[in-house]
Structures are given as C-alpha cells and as structure tokens.
C-alpha cells in the first residue's frame, strides 16, 4: 500500500510563539521580534516534518489567523465580519463579508507563504480553503448566487494554483469541512464539480487533496466521488471505516485518524487497522494519513506527539504490518 502522512491543517503555535504573538497584541514586543519567532518556529517545524518522513512539508501555516484570512486580506471584495464559531469547536474566525464579486490580486497566496516553503516549492504542501466551504461560511452581500459564487471562487483558486505552479508548487490541500457538514445539493453540487474541474486543470500533474472533517461523509460520497481531485480525505474520528460506502472505482483516499479533541494518544497499530479497513472499503490504491479535525485544537506539544504516532502508523502501513 502506498502511503503518505502529513499536516492537512495548521500546526498549533508553540508556547514561545503564543507568548510572542500575545505580547505583540498587548504592545509589549515588536513586529520584528515576532517575525524572528515565526521564522524559528517554521524552520523547526519543517525539520520535524522531514524527520517524521512526511512526503511534503507545510511549515505549519502558523501565521494563518483563520482559514480564510489570507484570501480575505489579499483579494478584493471582502471585509472582515463578526467573530463566529468554527464548526463544533471553541475556536473562532472572522466571518468574511463579501461586498462585491471577489477578485484576485496577483501574488496574494504566494506572498503569505513562509520562507521555508518558498525555498523548496516542490516539497511544499499548500493549505487553502475549499471553494464550497469558503462560499458557504461567508456573509454573501455581493448579489451573486451561492452556486455562482462557488464556481467563481473555484476559478479564482485555480488562478492562484496556476501562479503557484509557475513557481514549482505541486501539492495542494483544500479544506472542505462544509461539504460533509452541510452537503451541497442540486446546482450547488454541480458548481462544486465545475470549481474543482477548474482547479484540476490549473497545474498539470499537480496533486490536489480535498479534506473533509466534522461529520460522517456518507451522504456526500456520490458527489465527492465525482470531483476532479487526486484524493478525498474523510474523518475517521466521525465515522467507523465499516460504515464508509463501498466503492468500485480505485482512487486515492485521505483518512483523518488523529483526534485533536483529546490529548489521549492514538495507538499506531489501531490507526493502521482502521486506515487499511477504510482503504479496503474504498478500494484505495494510496492512503493519505492526516488529522480528523484541525490539529491546532491541541497545544503544540501534544500535537507533536500525535504527529509522531501518525508517522509510526504510516510506517506500519507501508511495511504491510497493521498490528
């Protein structure tokens, strides 16, 4: 079984970074000091991702204030809205308010990437909001219909990928929890298919992973199976592998096997067992191991320990030993 493991959501900020960003917020330190703290943390995290044997690295996306902020700040048409709960968690995001049809400003994502990712684009994994989740969680005052907005965001994200692709970036993870929490129906589903077709065409040969979490993916599976992505990630902390619908189309499968709602460490052998069971149900020829919900729901140290478990489980699967 081919297997890869890695981050599919931002890594939590270290205690040092917590202190630095908090001090900046309170006017007790300088932006330069915080930048130094970010760079040190990013370098350290890339080194750890490599040590864990992950196929691509993220540097943790530690600077993200929330999933949408980079695009909301970097594109046109948005304002920052109220503090809003992020799904079933005690974390919050500033709900984007879309005042006009959105437009890209070139370089928005590229400029936000930390130095270690820009230094080695081929090894980088870029995390982005999925078009359905982005469209569904913003306050749309643009006059555009929901399905049209999903389609437009897909095209804009495709342009981002084209720009990133020209610089050598090849691996992209789209965070799409809303696809399973509130599955699209009718025209919304069709526009989502169209959005991912645009994304898939942006960078020939690129890997695109759509990552879901927060609910069992069952009702959304027929649509997920039609989307033009390399792999779909499902949250196995929300659904037992035996309940995944069987598939007759071999495809790559992402499995969320770490639970960031608890510091209780998973058993690597148990992870390998459920991941292989899921792969069997879905006839997956390759597995992507990740976290079942945002890893930044944990503090940094327990998150690091869980990544170690993930790496161990990936090794077991690669070696064909599930127990």
């Amino acid at each position: 079984m081919l297997v890869d493991a890695g981050l599919v959501s931002p890594f939590p900020r270290s205690e040092a970074l917590v202190r630095a960003t908090r001090d900046l917020d309170r006017g007790r330190t300088s932006a330069e000091e915080v930048e130094r703290a970010y760079r040190a943390a990013e370098e350290a995290l890339v080194a750890e991702e490599r040590t864990f044997g992950f196929g691509s690295v993220t540097a943790g996306f530690l600077r993200n204030d929330d999933l949408f902020r980079t695009l909301v700040s970097g594109w046109e048409g948005f304002a920052l809205g109220p503090l809003t709960r992020w799904f079933e968690s005690n974390t919050f995001y500033r709900r984007p308010v879309l005042l006009h049809p959105p437009a890209r400003r070139p370089g928005a994502v590229l400029a936000s990437l930390p130095p270690p990712l820009r230094a080695d684009p081929a090894a980088a994994r870029i995390l982005l909001p999925g078009p359905f989740t982005f469209a569904g969680l913003l306050d749309n005052r643009s006059g555009e219909t929901g399905p049209a907005l999903v389609h437009r965001l897909g095209r804009l994200l495709a342009e981002e990928l084209r720009e990133l692709g020209r610089d050598g970036f090849r691996t992209f993870v789209f965070s799409e929890p809303l696809v399973v929490v509130d599955p699209p129906e009718g025209p919304a589903g069709a526009s989502l298919e169209e959005a991912y077709r645009s994304i898939a065409a942006a960078v020939p040969g690129a890997t695109t992973v759509l990552w879901t979490y927060g609910a069992a993916p069952g009702p959304a599976f027929p649509l997920l199976d039609r989307l033009a992505v390399t792999a779909v990630g499902v949250d196995l902390t929300e659904v037992e592998p035996e309940r995944l619908p069987e598939s007759d189309r071999p495809r790559e499968l992402g499995v969320g096997v770490l639970d960031p709602r608890t510091t209780l460490l998973e058993d690597p052998a148990e992870i390998a067992r459920v991941a292989l069971a899921a792969a069997g149900r879905r006839r997956a020829r390759r597995l992507w191991l990740g976290v079942g919900a945002p890893l930044e729901w944990l503090p940094a140290e327990p998150a690091r320990a869980k990544l170690g478990v993930l790496a161990d489980a990936a090794r077991r699967i690669a070696q064909g030993a599930s127990a």
Binding site: D25, T91, R94
Partner: peptide, 17 residues
C-alpha cells in the same frame, strides 16, 4: 494543564487534560 490553545487571532487559553 498541557498548554495553550488559540481561541482566535492572538487570543489563547491554557487548556487542561
């Protein structure tokens, strides 16, 4: 106590197991 978790932006709280 096991460390800080972000609530939003640069707001955090210390969380226990």
């Amino acid at each position: 106590f096991v460390g800080h978790v972000r609530s939003f932006d640069a707001k955090y709280y210390r969380k226990a197991a």
